[in-house]
Simulated assay, not measured.
Amino acid sequence: MADFNFTPYDSSILILTGIPNLEDAHIWISIPFFMVYIMALLGNITVLFVVGKEQTLHKPMYLLLCMLALADIGTSTSFVPKALCIFWFNLTSITVKGCLTQMFFFHAFSTMHSAVLVTMAFDRYVAICNPLRYTTILTNARIAKLGLLGMIRAVLFILPMPLLVSRQPLCANRIIPHTYCDHIAVAKILCGDITGSRMYGLVLAFLIIGFDVTLIGLSYGLIIRTVLRLSSQEANQKALNTCTAHICALLMAYPVGLFSTLAHRFGQDMALHVHIILSNLHYLIPPMLNPIIYGVKTKELRDKVVKNICRMHSPHATDFKPE
């Protein structure tokens, strides 16, 4: 996507600056970027490999983990490689079509990530509030349909973003002060009326986050009501423990994401490099931590991961049974 022979006024080229005012520190910034990205890839690919290989993990909960892993891989991969090219080689140019493509996939995968979190909340609701009907309500086929529905929603909601941007003329100054082609960052370099793009992005952010958080809130409201009715303290603790990993994923996804969206539009007093670093961390940290959190909190998955690692190191140790 990079091109050494460009000028700022080339009609097909845009410039991504990386992190403004911290250009001299790009190499140092790239080190944690690269390490976190590699850890995210390794963790999520491990989840996909282990769940795919182990027949006993072909259950709705683990299929949802695979969907979350795919969304995390897609979100981080849609922008980190280009950011590293900027940091390492100063390859700041990107074609207009490449920028719009990156914009679509980045926002589509992050929207799919939110849809998976909603489905996970429904999964926890059924597991705690209707445990006897869990296997009949949440089948693998139904989870696959919900995943497909989340993907269709992402495509239909996000596709207008690059289409709205592409209809407006670009200004002579085609420099985007960011590490990736964020929708509002690209809209700000347009010379036409960007009210439609601004409003669509803002409404969409509140619509997706608002709708998804409302469904998640309703699920957890019903879960808390059911847990409070349990007579045994041990049963209460066990029920809540099944939600811990999901709650951690929610806390990483929504508060920082909403704050970043609002800051980019209304936070004129916030230093630009602070906002961009925050935005990048929001899409880098969850993909790295989600496999760790679910691996630690889900014993069956943890045991299968340990078993597969031991098999790789000791091919003949097929009878290994984790404690």
Rank of each mutant, 00 (worst) to 15 (best):
L70E: 07
N241W: 15
A245R: 05
A317I: 03
I86R: 08
S314E: 04
M112H: 02
L215W: 12
V96W: 07
A317Y: 12
R302W: 11
I176L: 09
L41Q: 04
A263Q: 13
G18F: 08
V203I: 14
L222V: 04
L138N: 10
Y37H: 11
D3L: 08
L251T: 06
L251Q: 01
A185D: 11
Y62N: 07
Y9P: 07
M120E: 13
A40P: 03
S279L: 04
L84V: 02
W88S: 08
I176R: 00
L289Y: 13
A185T: 06
T261P: 04
A245I: 09
I224G: 05
T136D: 15
S12M: 06
V116S: 01
T242N: 10
S76A: 14
I276Q: 00
A205D: 15
V51S: 10
S78P: 02
S93F: 07
F211A: 09
H58Y: 01
P287N: 11
I224H: 09
S11N: 00
I223N: 01
D193V: 08
L138M: 15
A172E: 13
I143S: 04
M1R: 14
Y200N: 10
I27Q: 07
P20R: 09
G221E: 05
V274D: 08
P291E: 13
L202V: 13
S30F: 06
D319E: 09
V47P: 08
A69K: 11
T77I: 09
A40Q: 01
I152S: 04
L68D: 11
Q268G: 08
N21S: 15
C66F: 07
L228N: 14
M120C: 09
F33S: 00
L284M: 15
M61S: 11
L215I: 08
E23Q: 11
V47F: 10
F266T: 12
F4N: 13
L132I: 08
L301V: 03
I38Y: 06
L149Y: 02
V203N: 12
N5M: 10
M67E: 05
L148K: 00
F266P: 12
H183Y: 15
P160N: 05
L57Q: 05
L148V: 03
G257V: 01
I94G: 00
P162L: 07
T92P: 06
P255Y: 12
G18R: 03
Y180Q: 01
P60S: 13
K299G: 05
L163A: 04
S232L: 05
H178W: 10
P20N: 06
K145A: 11
I175F: 02
S114R: 00
L250E: 03
F6L: 03
E300D: 14
T7E: 12
L91P: 02
L278A: 13
Y62P: 00
E54M: 13
Q168E: 15
S12N: 09
M161Q: 08
L250G: 06
G201T: 13
W88A: 04
T136S: 15
L146G: 05
L70N: 02
F122S: 08
A253I: 09
G147H: 02
L84I: 11
S11G: 03
F259E: 03
N308K: 06
I184N: 10
E23S: 09
Q268W: 14
T135V: 04
S314H: 15
R167M: 07
L91V: 07
D123L: 08
Y294N: 12
Q233F: 01
G147W: 01
H264A: 14
G210D: 05
S93A: 02
G150R: 04
L68I: 05
V203S: 13
